[in-house]
Design a protein around this nucleic acid. Sequence first.
DNA 1: GTCTATAGGTGGATAGAC
DNA 2: GTCTATCCACCTATAGAC
Lengths: 197, 197
Amino acid sequence: MSASPQSILAAARELFLEGGAERVTMRNVAERVGVTATALYRHYENREDLLRAVVSTGFEQFASYLSRSLRGKTASERLRLSGEAYLDFALDQPQMYRTIFMSVHPTGDCSPAQVRAQEQAEPTWSSTFTFLVDRVRDCMEEGSLKKAPARETGLLLWVAVHGLVSLHLVNALGEPDATFRRTYHATLARIVAGLSP
Amino acid sequence: MSASPQSILAAARELFLEGGAERVTMRNVAERVGVTATALYRHYENREDLLRAVVSTGFEQFASYLSRSLRGKTASERLRLSGEAYLDFALDQPQMYRTIFMSVHPTGDCSPAQVRAQEQAEPTWSSTFTFLVDRVRDCMEEGSLKKAPARETGLLLWVAVHGLVSLHLVNALGEPDATFRRTYHATLARIVAGLSP
DNA sequence: GTCTATAGGTGGATAGAC
DNA sequence: GTCTATCCACCTATAGAC
């Protein structure tokens, strides 16, 4: 059996999507690849290193989901598509969403693992926020949103979107995905209505 | 040394507030109480039992925070105080907030631990939601909120409040508590403005 | 009620043979 | 590159002496 970094990463990713980070143990990954645990250390320094690679793929995927929304022809269409992309990612990859947006990434200097996790996570948060603010600004220039500080409006939208998604992902709303999509759309529509001219 | 159920629970609670459930191990608790781990089994059946007791205190505390808001004299004052109580709880007991509102409690029948956790959690979610909806209905009758389906408006407010709090608790907003309080108030004010007559 | 001793489990990581 | 053998750390939980 030959184990490439790619095959190892793929196995680790599978396990992660199935059951989150805790499921990604050297032993579990090795078993799925078809080698022993020690073999993995030829390709990844340690578990933390492997886990970081897994989460990296998640960050990239999230960014690619969001960027799809730029294909919209009008500013308000692009904003709508952003909301859609955000929802799609959360429902397609709930474990990734939890890791990126629902896990603690401390501010203070802590363990090296957490410091590195934050270095990855922070750009994702701030670029998510920035992306939304840009969509909002476009809409304000286009006239489809009331003029207001774009950062405040962007935050308001992010908070609503994340609030909905994260409550759904812990089953606090008690809705299946399909029903939740309607709740999501309806709630956002009401919020956007309050921000429209 | 004598170890009462209370002293054990207190130690477990301390550890939980410091570092979440994972820190609550029989060994850690025992060390803090001043006995050996095996002694704990005289007072709690097992770790799950002890952890459940810890989380129970959190649920009760959350309920007591919320109920304080009923002292407000007008409906809109009570709604405002509810938002304040929610924020206070989240900032006072972030680990508890995470456990109650940011941890997965699966819908399907899973391990006994998760089933029991859900039995505890679900009433808390739905009673939180119901509590908010009641405040909203009061406000609508009072005329301080536009007439609309109270459940939808209540959900909208819960989503906003939880979105703000949970992003703050994972440090996604990069604000210290004091600054965040202002962001919280400002954002909610804008949302409520959109719902006012 | 609390102790010591102990069983049995999961997981990360290394040394050295092949 | 991968294996076996092994060590270490940490956890839950029980049996039986005191």
